[in-house]
């Protein structure tokens, strides 16, 4: 069902003014269709398809979040897994201490991850971009070490989470989670779209192209980078918040998995980093491919293929699928 996004022609090129409302509308329509499909097909679809859809949607959110800073601003975050895990463990802690509806847990997770993103950015974004990248890598490992040594959340052994009861509105908790993820994916893509079209996106593009020239053109680069880092981190945290209920058992190795960091980078780069729909395309392509490969071959093999695709795309097609499509369209004219 998520393939709809791929074949919708309106999404191809958001023209400056007329396309603006059209893109927004497209995001809404696709989202509504997805929601309706999930609700209507509820009892007719096997649990496996829900789980697969959830995973793909989760990567739509993570890839989109990564792209706000990485794609628009050119600052590479290697620590997506760290922010994602902040979301997971926020839920776990809240669930143990003050049980509350998942929606509020997600908001608190977003705030926590956003603050960590802001802090990391504030401390390292004045330096050359690579130092920020290395610091994000460091951040993920420091956080993992903290969690491993924190027995309240299960330490290295991990922790079981019990799914709350669900109202009669939904067929199963997993269906509820998928609906929730559809909503979150729409929200994330809408945020990315709004950023891209606003002064923030234009400023970030200038920073990505040449930071010094951007500064001398009046672009407050540190401020914009901090906004982007905070938004990106918060969205990653939000993506992690429902995860404990999805898997029902979380250990640091899963929450901080390198696969999350690699996928969050590979999906925008494979799809194309310049537009909001690049990461969506990348997440759907890579996400579906991984679901199929995990079933047919093995999960290690599918991760291997993600790595290979990432390397192939950055070397041969640095503009991603978006770039290929645009080049192809230009070639036809």
């Amino acid at each position: 069902m998520s393939r709809q996004a791929l074949s919708t022609p309106e999404l191809r090129k958001p023209a400056p003014i007329s396309g603006r409302s059209r893109s927004g509308l497209a995001i809404m329509l696709i989202g509504a269709a997805l929601l309706a499909a999930t609700m209507l097909l509820g009892s007719h679809i096997g649990e496996y398809y829900y789980l697969a859809t959830y995973t793909i949607l989760q990567f739509v959110v993570l890839g989109t979040a990564w792209n706000i800073l990485g794609g628009y601003g050119g600052y590479v975050n290697f620590g997506t897994a760290g922010f994602f895990a902040i979301g997971c463990y926020t839920t776990i802690v809240l669930n143990k201490m003050f049980p509350m509806p998942l929606f509020f847990e997600m908001l608190i997770a977003a705030a926590t991850a956003g603050v960590v993103g802001f802090g990391t950015g504030y401390l390292t974004l004045r330096l050359r971009g690579v130092f920020f990248s290395i610091a994000t890598l460091a951040l993920a490992i420091v956080l993992q070490t903290l969690i491993v040594n924190w027995s309240f959340v299960g330490g290295a052994r991990g922790v079981y989470v019990i799914r709350p009861a669900i109202s009669g509105f939904f067929v199963s908790y997993v269906q509820f989670l998928v609906v929730l993820m559809v909503g979150l994916a729409i929200f994330a893509v809408a945020v990315a779209w709004a950023v891209e079209k606003s002064w923030i996106g234009i400023g970030l593009a200038a920073i990505r192209d040449d930071e010094a020239a951007a500064e001398t053109s009046g672009v407050p680069s540190l401020r914009l980078k901090l906004i982007a880092t905070t938004m990106s981190g918060a969205l990653m945290g939000m993506a992690g918040a429902p995860f404990p209920y999805y898997v029902t058992y979380v250990d640091p190795a899963t929450a901080f998995s390198l696969a999350i960091a690699v996928n969050a980078i590979a999906m925008p780069l494979v799809g194309g980093t310049a537009t909001w729909w690049g990461p969506v395309v990348g997440a759907i392509l890579l996400g579906s491919a991984q679901q199929i490969l995990t079933v047919t071959i093995s999960s290690a093999a599918n991760l291997f293929i993600v790595g290979v695709l990432l390397v192939v795309f950055v070397t041969v097609a640095p503009r991603g699928v978006v770039g290929i499509v645009r080049g192809w369209k230009r070639g036809r004219k």
């Binding site: 192209d209 040449d210 010094a212 020239a213 500064e215 001398t216 053109s217 009046g218 672009v219």
Partner: peptide, 23 residues
């Protein structure tokens, strides 16, 4: 900071042109 100087009215060019290449 540089951006605020630019806003206040201190502008410059670069010796080696530094356009925003993606625009």
């Amino acid at each position: 900071p540089a951006w605020l100087r630019a806003r206040r009215g201190l502008a410059r060019t670069y010796q080696i042109p530094r356009p925003f290449r993606g625009m």
